[in-house]
């Protein structure tokens, strides 16, 4: 070799070490900033929860859960809201899950790759970003008036189903895509039809992911106030009007909490509202735990 590569001197090496130390310092500073930001977010949330627990915890008792709304803060209850929310949830899931899973399977396994399919895909992604109040207006126009369902539980559930459908479809497609191609090929090579492969191999493998996506979407839906308020959820309901009469008027927890908060009396505005929020949070937590359990229980390894 004509030109030898210059050797590193001791001085160079020490300079390098110095640079390394400075880099490490920078890194640590960056990590500290990130930690602080995370801590702020968590702290605010924690404060909120603590405040609500302090205000609402003592107000929660059997009477509060099983009584209908009352004129007085001491006698009021959230039975209407709780049962309404639970039945909304079930009905919404019953509508949204099959439709969403079906759409996901179609788009992943059967849809031809053409303009129409791409248009649909783009629209589904866009729908996931539409503000929920818009879904409420759609629900009023289509379900309440056009289909003449009135301001009923069914209309509310269908509206919420529409709201979470894009999320379920996207989650469903993701979990279908996670099924290895080799499983498809293996099934088809044994003389299975594409439908048989979808039904017997892909669907069972993708189900945990689909369930998780659906439950998380549902827990978002039941916390929504705007769409069902627009569709016409009521605050109080007659005692003989149970929620499983799904063509009848319905209440829901977020709407009831909204109503509590807007009253002037402390008993409503602070105690009852906080207690209602606690119940709603408990329902959400239970659902999210269910999603985790479902995922762990049904998931398969490859």
């Amino acid at each position: 070799m004509a030109v030898s590569t210059p050797r590193r001197t001791v001085h160079d090496t020490l300079a390098g070490l110095e640079r390394g130390r400075r880099r490490k310092l920078k890194e640590r500073a960056f990590a500290t900033v990130l930690f602080t930001l995370t801590a702020v977010a968590i702290l605010v949330l924690a404060l909120l929860v603590v405040d609500i627990v302090l205000d609402g915890f003592t107000r929660i008792n059997v009477d509060f859960l099983t009584r209908y709304a009352s004129r007085t803060a001491e006698n009021t209850g959230i039975r209407a809201g709780l049962t309404g929310t639970l039945s909304l949830m079930v009905l919404t899931a019953l509508v949204a899950f099959p439709v969403g899973v079906g759409a996901a399977i179609y788009l992943e396994e059967f849809a031809p790759d053409n303009r129409f399919t791409r248009l649909m895909e783009a629209n589904i992604s866009n729908l996931a970003g539409v503000p929920s109040v818009v879904y409420g207006l759609l629900g009023v126009a289509v379900f309440v008036y056009a289909l003449n369902l009135g301001r009923s539980l069914l209309a509310g559930a269908l509206t919420l189903a529409l709201l979470i459908l894009p999320v379920i479809i996207v989650a469903g497609r993701e979990s279908i895509r996670a099924v290895p191609l080799a499983i498809r090929d293996g099934g088809l090579a044994l003389g299975a039809t594409p439908w048989q492969v979808s039904y017997r191999q892909i669907l069972p493998s993708a189900l945990p992911g689909m369930l998780t996506g659906t439950i998380l979407a549902l827990s978002r839906a039941i916390g929504e106030t705007a769409p069902i308020l627009v569709v016409g959820a009521v605050f109080s309901r007659r005692a003989d009007n149970e929620p499983w009469y799904f063509m009848e008027a319905f209440a829901a927890l977020p709407v009831q909490i909204y109503n509590f908060v807007s009253r002037p009396q402390e008993g409503f505005k602070i105690d009852a509202a906080s207690a209602g929020i606690l119940v709603l949070m408990a329902v959400l937590l239970i659902m999210n735990s269910a999603a985790i359990v479902a995922r762990n229980r049904f998931s398969r390894r490859y």
Partner: peptide, 17 residues
Amino acid sequence: EVRRRIGMVFQKPNPFP
């Protein structure tokens, strides 16, 4: 129908889960 008569084994073992 063709694949029912003409089976195939792939490069990587691909048993169903």
